[in-house]
Amino acid sequence: MKLIVVFEKTSRLRHIGHLDLMRAMQRALRRSGLPLKYSQGFNPHILLTFAAPLSVGMPGKREIMEVPIEGEMTGEAFLGKLRPALPPELPCISARAVDDRHPAPMAQLAAAMYEAKLDEVPEGLAEAIPAFLAQSEIPAIRKTKTGMKPCDIRPMIYDLSLNGDALRMTLALCEKATCKPELLLSTLFDFAKLERPHMIVTRTQMFGEKDGVFYPLEEM
């Protein structure tokens, strides 16, 4: 069977890159004494997949990984073993046991919600958001492997709002279409002709989609 595990990458660890985080999780799992599955080959490692890598510099509130194990085990029992093996800065929140045939979170991923905490909220930002969203097309320049490409990000923005000093956004995150928060933010501030304050952007939730409705990815 396998477990769908929700964990937090706290702000303190936001500068840890994806590969380093994977290695840290590998080692945590090794410390846990759980019945893990290993890859074949010369340098065996624990089988483990993350729903989506997190950018360097970005904390994640509810990150998701999938861990196959040998035998049967409840989510609580799994959590009970993994918790003490993790540092306080990398706590796990929940674990759900599912059948091996259960689709992988990575394959079901559709969107993610982010929250940008602004050091100060520039005047005019609140007013600019409705106008920004009212555009039928939002041209942006996306960096791709093959160079800079113009694209329309409007269809990839599912939600954008300002709540106090936090900009909340829900953006497409899947194989077909991905809008990184950074792209939205730079486009938004350009549109509003505002200077960007310092901010920390956190990924707060990932979603899967069913019949046009988003559900938390860990519940899919």
């Binding site: 706290t10 303190r12 660890l13 500068h15 840890i16 890159g17 380093d20 840290a24 080692r27 945590a28 410390r31 093996a85 993790l86 540092p87 306080p88 800065e89 990398l90």
Partner: peptide, 10 residues
């Protein structure tokens, strides 16, 4: 930057 942030296991 990660070498300045600590928070390691143990």
């Amino acid at each position: 930057p990660a070498r300045y942030t600590g928070g390691e296991m143990n």
